[in-house]
C-alpha cells in the first residue's frame, strides 16, 4: 500500500503581499510556505503509515526550489518525494496541472490499495479543483472536505463536511481524499528526520519523463495549452477613506448613534 500526498509550495498570502505595477504578483518579495491544508494531508498519510507501515510519497509540481519543501516533508516522515518540474508545465491551469500530476502518479504506479491525499485547496488560488480533477483523470473515486479517516480493510470510511452538517462515506481504494484543517494537527519535522532527509530518494520528473504517458495530452498543458486563460488582472479598488471619530467615550458613541439615526440607517 502506498499513499501519494500532493503538496504545493505557495506564497504566504497571510503576510505582506506586493503587487507589481502591471497587476501581477511580485513573488520575489514574498515568503514561500507549504500550503497549509497540504500539511494536514501529509499528517493524515503519516498517521496511516504509523498504523499500517505503508509507504508515503510526497508529490509536488513546481519550479526547482520546491525541492527544499519536499526535503522538509521527508523530514516530517515521508519515505520519498517526486518533483514534477519543467518549463513546459509552467503556467498550467487546474485542468492542465491535474493531468500532469495524474500522469506522474500513473508513471510511478497506482495499485489497488493506494490512496491519494490532497489538501482541500491552496491559498494562492483557492480553487479546490486540482484534487477532484486528478481523481477524474485517474478514474478513481474521490471524497472532498474530509474531517476524519478510518481504514476498514480495503475500504476507507471518512467524514465529509457539508455547510450544514456532514456525511459518513465508505469508499473503496484506490481513491483520492481532500483534507481540511479540522482533520488533524500536522506534526513537526523530527531530528532524525532532518538528519536523514537528504539520504532518501527525491525523483525529478521532467517533460521528457512524462511526455509519453497516456494521461497527458501535449496540447492541453502549460500556459498556452490550458483550457482557461487570464484575460485581465487587476487590484481591487480602495474604498474611499471614512471618518475616524474623535475619542472613544460616551460622547463618541452617542454622536455616532445620532448620525446613523439622522440618516435613517438605524
Amino acid at each position: 500500500m502506498k499513499i501519494y500526498v500532493c503538496v504545493k509550495q505557495v506564497p504566504d498570502t497571510s503576510g505582506k503581499v506586493a503587487v507589481n505595477e502591471d497587476g501581477t504578483l511580485n513573488r520575489a518579495s514574498m515568503d514561500t510556505i507549504t500550503n497549509p491544508d497540504d500539511l494536514n494531508a501529509m499528517e493524515a498519510a503519516l498517521q496511516l503509515k504509523d498504523a499500517t507501515g505503508c509507504k508515503v510519497i510526497a508529490v509536488s509540481m513546481g519550479p526547482p526550489p520546491a525541492e527544499g519543501m519536499l526535503r522538509q516533508l521527508i523530514a516530517m516522515g515521508a519515505d520519498e518525494a517526486i518533483l514534477i518540474s519543467g518549463r513546459e508545465f509552467g503556467g498550467s491551469d487546474t485542468f492542465a496541472t491535474s493531468q500532469i500530476i495524474a500522469a506522474a502518479i500513473n508513471h510511478v504506479g497506482l495499485d489497488e490499495e493506494d490512496i491519494v491525499f490532497c489538501g482541500r485547496q491552496a491559498i494562492d488560488g483557492d480553487t479546490a479543483q486540482v484534487g477532484p480533477q486528478i481523481a477524474d483523470k485517474l478514474e478513481i473515486p474521490q471524497v472532498t472536505y474530509v474531517a476524519d479517516i478510518k481504514k476498514d480493510g480495503k475500504d476507507v470510511v471518512v467524514k465529509r463536511m457539508l455547510e450544514d452538517g456532514y456525511m459518513t462515506i465508505k469508499v473503496k481504494t484506490p481513491c483520492l481524499l481532500t483534507c481540511i484543517k479540522e482533520l488533524n494537527t500536522p506534526r513537526y519535522m523530527s531530528v532524525s528526520g532532518i538528519m536523514e532527509c537528504y539520504s532518501k530518494p527525491l525523483t525529478i520528473l521532467d517533460f521528457d519523463a512524462l511526455k509519453d504517458e497516456p494521461l497527458i495530452e501535449l496540447d492541453t498543458i502549460g500556459l498556452k495549452g490550458s483550457p482557461t486563460n487570464i484575460y485581465k488582472s487587476f487590484t481591487p479598488p480602495q474604498k474611499g477613506v471614512g471618518v475616524m471619530l474623535e475619542g472613544d467615550g460616551k460622547e463618541t458613541a452617542e454622536a455616532l448613534a445620532a448620525t446613523l439615526a439622522a440618516k435613517h440607517i438605524i
Binding site: 491551469d93 484534487g131 472532498t144 472536505y145 455547510e163
Partner: peptide, 23 residues
C-alpha cells in the same frame, strides 16, 4: 461554489475536457 458544487464542477470539467473558473 458550495462544498458540493466545488466537488462536482471540477470533476465534470475534467470529464468534459473543458475549463472551469473557481469561486
Amino acid at each position: 461554489a458550495s462544498n458540493i458544487g466545488r466537488d462536482l464542477a471540477p470533476r465534470c470539467a475534467a470529464r468534459l475536457h473543458t475549463g472551469l473558473c473557481a469561486d
